[in-house]
C-alpha cells in the first residue's frame, strides 16, 4: 500500500490573515498543498489528523485574539506537537520577529528545527522547507 506522495502538505499556523495569505500564495506557487490554522489548539489537531510534511509555526500568536498578554500560543503548540508521538517527528519552522542571535538557541531548544525571521526572505524559507522535507 503506497501513500500518494506526489503532493506535499504543509501546515501554516499564523494568526495574521494577511501574512497567511502571502505565505499561501508563495507556497501554492511552489506546488505545495497548504492548509492553515490560526491558533495553537487547532494546529495540533490538524497536525495529528493531516500529518503534514512540515509545519510553519508563528511563535507569537496570542492565546486570545487581541489580548496582547500571552503571545506564547505558538510555543505551547510546539511543545504539544513534540510530546505527541503522532507528530513529534514533523519538522517545525518557527516564524518569528525576534532577534535570532539571542533567542535562536532557546527556540531550537523548545523543539523547532529551523527559524524564519519576519519579514521573511522567501528564497531562504523555501530552501529551508525543501531541506527539511528532503531529510525526513
Amino acid at each position: 500500500m503506497h501513500a500518494c506522495d506526489s503532493v506535499v502538505k504543509i501546515l501554516v499556523v499564523e494568526d495574521d490573515k494577511d501574512n497567511l495569505d502571502i505565505l499561501q500564495e508563495l507556497l501554492d506557487g511552489e506546488g505545495y498543498d497548504i492548509f492553515a490554522a490560526d491558533n495553537g489548539a487547532d494546529a495540533v489537531k490538524l497536525a495529528q489528523d493531516e500529518q503534514p510534511a512540515v509545519i510553519l509555526m508563528d511563535l507569537q500568536m496570542p492565546d486570545f485574539p487581541n489580548s496582547g498578554l500571552n503571545n506564547e500560543a505558538g510555543l505551547v503548540a510546539t511543545r504539544d506537537l513534540r510530546s505527541d508521538p503522532r507528530t513529534q517527528s514533523i519538522p517545525i519552522v518557527a516564524l518569528t520577529g525576534f532577534d535570532t542571535e539571542k533567542a535562536g538557541a532557546a527556540i531550537m531548544a523548545a523543539g523547532c528545527d529551523a527559524i524564519a525571521n519576519k519579514p521573511y526572505d522567501f528564497s531562504s524559507l523555501l530552501e529551508t522547507i525543501a531541506d527539511l522535507i528532503r531529510h525526513r
Partner: peptide, 23 residues
C-alpha cells in the same frame, strides 16, 4: 530591533512556562 529586545521576553516565557524544561 533597536527599540527593544523581545528575545529576552521569549527566553523568559520559555522558562516560566517550563516549555524548555518540558523538552
Amino acid at each position: 530591533d533597536r527599540c527593544g529586545d523581545d528575545s529576552r521576553e521569549l527566553v523568559r516565557a520559555l522558562e516560566s512556562h517550563s516549555i524548555v524544561a518540558a523538552a
